[in-house]
Every structure is written in structure tokens, then in C-alpha cells.
Design a binder for these strands. Sequence first.
RNA 1: GCGCCCGUAGCUCAGAUGGAUAGAGCAACAGCCUUCUAAGCUGUGGGUCGCUGGUUCGAGUCCAGCCGGGCGCGCCA
Length: 557
Amino acid sequence: MSLVLKKGMERSLERIFESALKKIGVPEGIPVRFETPQNEAHGDLSTNIAMLIAKDLKRSPRDIAKEIVDYVRGEDGELKSVEIAGPGFINVMFRNDYITGQLQELLSHGTEYGKGESNKGQRINLEWVSANPTGHLHAGHGRQACLGQAIANLLDWTGAEVTREYYFNNAGNQMTNLAKSVRVRYLQQLGEPIELDEDGYRGMEIVEIAKEMVREFGESKREESLAFFQSFGEKKNFRHIRSTLERLGIHHDIFFNENSLYESGAIERTISEFKARGLAYEKDGALWLRLSEMGQNEDRVIVKSSGEPTYRLPDICYHRDKLSRGYDDIIDIFGADHIATIADVLAALKSLGYDTERIKVILHQMVTFVSGKELIKFSKRSGEAYSLDELIDDVGADAAKFFFNMRASGSHLEFDVELAREQSEKNPVYYVQYAHARIASIVRFAAQEGIAFSIPDKTEEGNTDLSVLEHPEELRLIKVLIRFPQVIERSAAALAPHHVCEYLREVAAQFHRFYQECRIVGGPKHLEIPRLLLAMATKRVIANGCAVLGVTAPESM
RNA sequence: GCGCCCGUAGCUCAGAUGGAUAGAGCAACAGCCUUCUAAGCUGUGGGUCGCUGGUUCGAGUCCAGCCGGGCGCGCCA
């Protein structure tokens, strides 16, 4: 986290603590870090700095802490308390008016609240989904699709200029299989006794494509070339993939066709370069890359004896292309099943002299779909895949996006379709959305009751005094809300949207607690509008957090 | 055999650069609606953080070795 974007209090505390360290003779350059304790008895912010430097100073942590605290107490009147606790923690508590001041700040930022600048000026390329147009997206693709969408949004929110990219291959073996499969299905439609190859695509979408061909062309394409079937199938599949992504609100700026790497000569150039550097050699009629000399386990074929490159070579060229476009960061999202190629590609790029530090790879684990206790099985052989469209039909786009982002990408995800579909308190999506709808309803009710108020703006002139909010549940709620910018910051830095899901649940839970304890409309007159504004701030944070996940925040449910 | 990921409550999972009494949801049990959405809230029970060593004032977190699960290891992508 850069200094620039830390909220005022934390930054000024760091400064004060650092000058305290200087005063007691600690060499400069040791940063003071604060964390938000999970236990509220430990204050609003806490630091373990005294324990960290105790060894070097050869003094007890509590001793050091005492000296720091004495200094800090003299410096800052903004704090309610500064205390030493446990083995040497220093816990600080904010004054209530500071906390309500932060609420004012939140309200004045509106839809912008939570946006930061930690990635300001960064041009970042994010590549994800990247499924070849050999069929429809299946439910498992949903994780990557939704993960990438949320990550792209997080990067946006932290000020990056994001290019969203989809890499696909419409040539090679897979597409030939598609062509053959479409052809067989088409001929079957025309009554010919012909069967799919062993590695043919068995999905029902191929049958649908064949039926469409019959409707459109009748029997006239019986003798057509494979190229025709391929292009027809590709077009239909791609249109379908894009419509599925559209249902999730996912858009890409660039669809990068692997084929363009051949057309531009990039493949040839890279081959010559490998050869010129002595990194490639011929064996058994194929061209091999000396990966074993680049720190990898074994050499791999990059050009088959048939003359066609294996996928590794275009993958390498594709990354060269992205590197040449001058991005500050290049992020790839892959499923765990693609793990094998990544190290090879990076090693090859490094051997060509590229700085691969700029390339970040997110590997997400696989998804298991269950319905209650029952496992939903996928069978590629039979073509009985659970499609992403079906999943969206079953649970809705919002639930899909929330569920796919609920877990850390490195963790295996169990997606309970029955739970996601359920419109009850068990379902975390509804729990969060319900809080938002509930607030919307309260605001409507307030308007109906003739309560007039305005959202505070930055002028601070004529704004409602929020410092009357003193109830523990009110203050707890505000403290949760004003953490939002840091949550976005941290999630973006870790490329981990699941933190946002966790946080939103926390916000919703604290709002419900506040709602339970503090009557808004019809409560104490002088608290009516401040509480209403607190509710609106909550609504804002939920809406903004949902926006990051691409989830809607409904006005009523 | 090799590489990567995972192992935390009955289940699904969080645990910020190593810190305070390890958390949440669900499930179980006991309560709370003449008043702003009960799709909500409160309380109770539930753990040798896979095992064994090591580093450290301090380890769920770092290191090593095992055990268990997942994904890979092709002239497929």
C-alpha cells in the first residue's frame, strides 16, 4: 500500500510513531505498520512495532511501547486513547467525531467511494476466458469468467488502465475436430449412417449447429469442404460464447486470434531466433526447444514433424506480442489444468531476454458443482456437460458471479447450485442484496413520511451533523464502512476478489445489527436524519462493492 | 516418479508483512415480529489448525520431511 493513498489518520499516525522511534534512538527506515484488529477491544488500529524492534534494542517490548506511547500522547489530540496491551501491542482508538467525519467523507464521494490510485498510470493487460470456439462455455468456465471480470474491475477501481483480452485459436487440431464433428452431425441429420470420431465433440450444441445448417442450406452442403464446416461451426460457437459472457456483463476489448501470429510472421521469426540462439534443435523430424537448459525438466517439441507448431510456440509468441505492447503488467488467468505450459512459456521468454516479472499468472483451482448433497457430473465423452448458460438459468447471473468469487482462487470451489438458487437467508448473495433492498425500502418510507434530507457534499456547509451518532452499533457500522477503500486496495493488490465478498457479508451483518438496535424513521427526532444518512452510506458501500463483483444491488426484493 | 495447488468446527470456507482468547456461514439447540422488508436479530454448544521436527520472545501463517486429496507431466490445447 503506497503512502499516498492511505487515509489521513493512518498516515499521520505512522508519521507520529516514526518520529517517536527516532526520538528513542531507533535507526531510521523502519516503517510502522498498523492493522485493524479483529477484536474491537484492541482498538481501531494496532501496531506491533515495539515487539519488532525489541530485539535490536535489547529492551523489553513493553518498555519500548511505553516510551512510544508517552511521546504519541503528547503529539496527537485526535485520538481517544493510546494504550499498551498484551506482550507489547500499541492500540489506538479514534475519537467519535473523527469516525463520523469519515462517514461524511464517504457520503460526499458517492459512487466514487472506494476508488483509489494505487494502480494509477499503470497499463495492465488482463487475459482470461480464452476458450476456443469448439463448443459452448460450460459451467466450469464460469469461475474464470467471473474471477477475471472482478479482477478487471478491481484494477479499474485502483486507477489502472485495463485492457481486457481474449485469446483464441481457430486453427489446428481442435478446430479440425470441430469441423469433422459438425460435418458428421450434418450428414446424420440428412440420414446418413455415419458416426463421430473417437475424439469428436459430442456436445448437443454441435447437433444444434447441424440442424441450423439443414434449415439454412438443406442438403446442398453434402460435399462441402471441412473448412466450410469449421467456419460455420466457429461462427455459431463464438456467437454463443459471447452471448453467454454478455449475460454476465463480461466484455473484452481485444479478441486475439492465434492465427494472426502466423500471418504476421511472428511464429517464423521466433523460430529463427530460437535457432540463432542455439535454443532449438531438430530431432526425429521435429523442432525441439532446449527447455532443460532453461531450468525446466525436459525439452519439448515446438514444431511437429508435420510442420505444425505445438501450442507452446504460439503461446510464447503471443506473450512476446503482449510484452511488445508496453504494458506495465500482463496478467493471465488459467485453470489449474493448464499448469504445465506456464513455466515453459516463461522460461522461453526469459531465454529470449524478456523481463518476465511483468507477467503474473493466476491459477485458479477447479470447481465442483453440487446440488445439495448430490454431485453434478460432467462427462466430456457423452457431451453431457453442464453449460454455463444452464447454470445462469438455474441460479441467475448475480448468484453465479458472487459464488464464483466467494473463494480464494487457489482454493478448490464447491458450488452448491441448490443453495445459490435458494432465496433465503442461507444464500449469501441474498443476504447482501437484502440489506441493500431493505435500506432502499427505509429510504422510501422516510420520503413517504415527509423526512427531507440531503447527502452531505464536500463543502461542509450546511451538512447534517453526524457526530450525534454515538450508539455502539452506529459506530461499529461506520467503522466497517470506512474500511471499504482499504478492502478494495488489498483485494486489487492480491488480485483476490473473494475479500470483497467476505467484506460485503460483514457490512450486511453489521447493518442488520444496527437496524435491530437503532430505530431510524420514528426513532429519536434528532437522530432520524443522521441514521438515515448512515443507512444511505451503507447502501452506497454495498452498491459499490457489488459493482466490483458485477453483481446488482436491487432497490427491492 | 516429478511439478504446482490444497489439508482450519459435523459441512463449505476466511484467516493482511509471523502476534493478543483461531473466525464466518450453514447444520444443531434455545429465544426475538401490534412499529422503518423476520430474505432479519440474539444466545448456546462445537477445534491436538493433517502429522513430525526446525527457525522465533511468539507459528494456522516461515523452513524441512512425511501422510492424505486435486490438477498436470503428449509431435493435444
